[in-house]
């Protein structure tokens, strides 16, 4: 019995952070408004993001995609003058509520940014950073988490033998996968990605897209993208935003093949200046 446990531990190597305890990770937004000062950047958005599916936000520049995405892990709190109203239920808890701690929330909701932003440290230290700030010190546990995260981010094959090297030396695509690995290392339920491929070349992009396909087996993924083909390729559900409003939301196939709204159709067919 003990042998079985040990073996299991080695294989699974679950980060012992109280993260993924919920069996489901879904989001219900109800009447979300987001303001920058007096400017309402997101207007009355309601939608449901499903468990272990990839949801994409598309829309023209400045329509509020990033703003909405950053509401999901309360990164907007970091911007002076940004105010959010309405409710966002994450597994039943309103994360816009007063009682929610953004820091704990972010442990459960990882984020990958538009430009790869590794810390100027070694590859190992980048991935181990999250677990470390949550108090994991044991070398063997850290080794295990780093390896698993890098494998999950499809980067282990390329960097497994040079973990001590600086992350800055990696290529752009590798850096972005490292950032994904770094986000996975804290064992989140959900991953937010804000145009993760816009700074990458096509080969790196396709690697990340493959990765997203793998990730949705164990994570709920929300992705913002400018690239409609990409949204069509990777997502299960798509929301089209325009001037802060969620114009249409539904299964990706339906949105791209039979949009119900004229605005959506115009955008998708490129008739949108």
């Amino acid at each position: 019995m003990f042998a079985f446990l040990n073996k299991k531990k080695k294989e699974e190597c679950v980060c012992p952070i109280p993260g993924k305890e919920a069996k489901e990770a879904y989001i219900d937004m109800k009447g979300v408004n987001i303001f920058y000062g007096s400017n309402r950047a997101v207007k009355d958005v309601s939608m449901r993001i499903k468990h272990r599916k990839v949801t994409a936000f598309i829309g023209p520049s400045g329509c509020g995609k990033s703003t909405l995405l950053r509401a999901l892990n309360r990164m907007n709190d970091e911007i002076d003058g940004c105010k959010m109203t309405g409710s966002i239920f994450m597994n039943g808890v309103d994360i816009l509520g007063k009682k929610v701690d953004p820091v704990s929330l972010r442990t459960n909701v990882g984020m990958v940014f538009q430009k790869p932003n590794p810390f100027p440290k070694s590859i190992f230290d980048n991935v181990a950073y999250g677990p470390r700030i949550h108090g994991i010190r044991k070398k063997s546990t850290l080794d295990c988490i780093v390896e698993k995260s890098l494998r999950d981010a499809a980067l282990w094959e390329e960097v497994g033998d040079r973990l001590a090297e600086s992350a800055i030396g990696l290529s752009g695509g590798q850096q972005q996968r490292l950032c994904i690995a770094r986000a996975l290392a804290v064992n989140p339920e959900m991953i937010l990605m804000d145009e993760p491929c816009s700074a990458l070349d096509p080969i790196a992009t396709s690697k990340i897209e493959d990765l997203i396909f793998e990730l949705k087996k164990s994570y709920t993924v929300v992705i913002v993208t400018h690239n409609m083909q990409q949204a069509a390729r990777v997502s299960d559900d798509t929301g089209f935003m325009y001037l802060g409003e969620l114009i249409e939301f539904g299964p990706t196939k339906q949105i791209f093949q039979r949009p119900k709204q004229k605005l959506t159709e115009n955008y998708i067919t490129g008739r949108f200046g």
Partner: peptide, 14 residues
């Protein structure tokens, strides 16, 4: 760079 702060905050660092 602001990106270092964002990355760390995004990982749940205080």
């Amino acid at each position: 760079p602001q990106t270092f702060r964002e990355a760390a905050r995004g990982l749940g660092a205080t």
